[in-house]
């Protein structure tokens, strides 16, 4: 019996001028599972994520979400699709001009035309879910620490009870303890919602904690994928070098040797 795929990517390519960032990505994301994409800086992780979201348009290939083609879809179809998505950005990407609760409820008020009072109640509940008190809701994002901003970003990502949640480098820039707190929250929120999760990270501790499946991207291609528990015995030299953080190996960094 074939697997129930939530997201299916086939031969997806994307170039910026002469620079080819995605060189034929093939990836399956089963429904209800948490897939983590690992890879070095500049390997195409963020571009891949933005192509799925429709923020960037892939040059060729096929991206299907729930069996519907994303590439070339109309703006209204994209808008409808995005109502089922949530996204936690690397820097949280909170709107400076709005308070914390307005940030969390933004998608409900603007995207779903929910009355502000009702949206505020949901925002406060979501903030509580990520361990933030109601007093935080009235603050502005600039008054929050990096960890708190990430938690507000997570609350915003789950505010509309999405089917799919994307996490872009969720632990980057956080201390190890706060990173673990965020990882726990991600696992809890995804489980509570029963959502499909796609994360990109180069933090292996985070990947091990939140992933059901792991895929590695290198030079715009998925070079290995498997269950999270298999990553240490992948038999792939690129994966081994990456997860152990070794400078020597098949992955060549664009750094001039002294």
């Amino acid at each position: 019996m074939s697997e129930d795929l939530h997201i299916k990517m086939r031969d997806v390519r994307k170039a910026f001028g002469a620079k080819h960032v995605l060189n034929g990505i093939n990836l399956d994301v089963p429904r209800g599972q948490s897939v983590v994409i690992i890879g070095g800086s500049g390997s195409g992780k963020s571009v891949m994520l933005k192509c799925i979201l429709g923020i960037l348009r892939a040059d060729s290939g096929s991206i299907q979400v729930n069996g519907r083609e994303v590439i070339g879809q109309s703006t209204s179809d994209q808008s409808e699709m995005l109502q089922h998505f949530g996204m936690l950005f690397q820097g949280a990407a909170l709107f400076d001009s709005l308070t914390v609760w307005e940030n969390v409820s933004f998608g409900l008020i603007q995207g779903k035309n929910m009355p502000r009072g009702e949206a505020k109640d949901i925002a406060m509940a979501k903030l509580a879910q990520v361990g933030l008190g109601s007093e935080v809701g009235e603050l502005s994002p600039a008054e929050l620490s990096g960890g708190m901003q990430k938690r507000v970003g997570l609350a915003r990502a789950i505010a509309a009870d999405p089917d799919v949640i994307f996490f872009d480098e969720p632990t980057t820039g956080l201390d190890p303890i706060m990173a673990d707190v965020i990882n726990d929250l991600i696992v809890k929120c995804v489980k509570d919602l029963g959502a499909t999760a796609v994360s990109i990270t180069h933090d292996m501790a985070s990947a091990r904690k939140i992933a059901d499946k792991i895929a590695m991207i290198y030079k715009g291609e998925i070079i290995w994928e498997g269950d999270a528990i298999e990553v240490d015995a992948s038999g792939n030299a690129h994966v081994d070098q990456f997860i152990h953080g070794r400078a020597d190996g098949p992955i060549e960094m664009d750094v001039l040797k002294p």
Partner: peptide
């Protein structure tokens, strides 16, 4: 410009809000 480089404009799009309109 600040909204662009801090991904706030991308965040608007993911929240079903057209950045041009908003």
């Amino acid at each position: 410009g600040t909204m662009r480089v801090t991904e706030q404009i991308d965040a608007l799009a993911t929240l079903s809000t057209n950045p041009f309109k908003y």
